[in-house]
Design a binder for these strands. Structure first.
Lengths: 209, 209
DNA sequence: TGTATTAGAGTACATTTGTTTTAATGAAGT
DNA sequence: ACTTCATTAAAACAAATGTACTCTAATACA
């Protein structure tokens, strides 16, 4: 792995590399050599070619020869977080091992329409959803396909949005909390607008990011 | 927002759109019209032009006219998951509102060295870390900088790895569970190897991804 | 059936773009 | 001061590429 400011690179190479990453992040495609030339304040493409060649030799980028705008940043293949094994939260059982698979969080972001909500309150505490957690939701298009026990965010018009277990029983809808202190909400199907179905819980335990 | 299979698109347009997204994900740059032509099994660029024009009119893609391989997928601004507001997990308080900010999960992936562990057991259940959860950890370089109350994964040589609260008191290390059924583990600082500090909890609630 | 519309094939052209070559400039070292 | 090397400029070229145009085939529709 390489750090953003790599001492293997000259200043000119590093400046170009940074600019390329910025450009590709913004535009989702590779810049042309003449664009880089202009961005670096140069008047001929040769220096850019030289720097690109060095960046390629050092493993930072690659491209398809002869093809326009086919650069790739090889460093930024961040497909997932390595799962290093299991950790015991009970006794001392599992061994810390090598990478088993990848937790592909970025896959989540690829899915369309997913949105997140911040949780207020502790009505879902027994489902391990705490105050302040982020919940990732998938929009519900067909409320008839909801199974009992699914955690949904539902809007009761005139009242607000809430995160609860979905239970359908005898033509009635019950929104049940995962906390005995809260009473189930009983509604007719027409009264409630389901917004999303719970996909994942995300809790930031640090200010690191 | 658009769904992956959008009825606004013809089959041909949808097939092309899917292929483009796949290509751009893999290569980090835009394909050329002739590449798309070949991928779609066509023998002239005109149909691709037509489909691209339609995709652009419907807001799926954009490009810089005349420039080679400058497509952008306007839909796939994968910078984060939109946070649509707060949801009450207590009463019915908060209103479902527009996007407030973005939950930038991908930022996490940018940070190097972060790894994930699968949690076994329920010793951290009171910290809302459940069996089967993924915990994202940051490696610990300096164990002296650990604050009491930090959740760490620690390896006790000869025993195994565990996820616990870190508490240092009187020269001793205590690894405390978030579950009264488990007794604290008392150790000397030399006996324990700290692997990571908890950054985030990730729980998949669906097989969607 | 006949017409209108759309999609695709084929072709051609101008621009963009990567690449090469040569010369000029500047810095560093002897 | 001289050489040597790397960097830049400049120009030219060929390939890749976007775009426009015409023609044909397929399809939909009345």
């Amino acid at each position: 792995m390489k750090s953003p400011i790599d001492s293997n690179l000259t200043d000119a190479q590093n400046e170009l590399y940074g600019w390329i990453k910025k450009y590709m992040k913004e535009f989702q495609h590779s810049p042309s050599i003449r664009q880089m030339m202009q961005a670096m304040g140069l008047k001929s493409p040769a220096p850019i070619q030289s720097r690109l060649k060095h960046l390629q030799e050092k493993g930072y980028i690659s491209w398809q020869e002869g093809k326009a705008r086919t650069m790739q940043i090889v460093d930024e293949i961040i497909e997932g977080v390595p799962i290093m094994g299991s950790v015991a939260a009970g006794g001392l059982i599992e061994t810390y091992s090598d990478v088993q698979e990848n937790l592909d969080i970025s896959e989540v972001l690829k899915k369309k329409n997913i949105f997140a909500l911040t949780v207020n309150g502790d009505s879902m505490i027994d489902a391990c959803i705490a105050d302040g957690d982020m919940v990732l939701m998938e929009p519900i298009t067909d409320s008839y396909s909801l199974r009992n026990g699914t955690i949904v965010s539902a809007m009761v018009p005139g009242l607000g949005t809430t995160l609860k277990y979905f239970v359908k029983r005898g033509g009635k809808i019950f929104l049940e909390a995962a906390n005995p202190e809260y009473e189930p909400i009983e509604l007719n199907l027409e009264e409630v607008v389901f917004q999303g179905r719970l996909l994942a819980v995300w809790r930031k335990c640090s200010n690191y990011f």
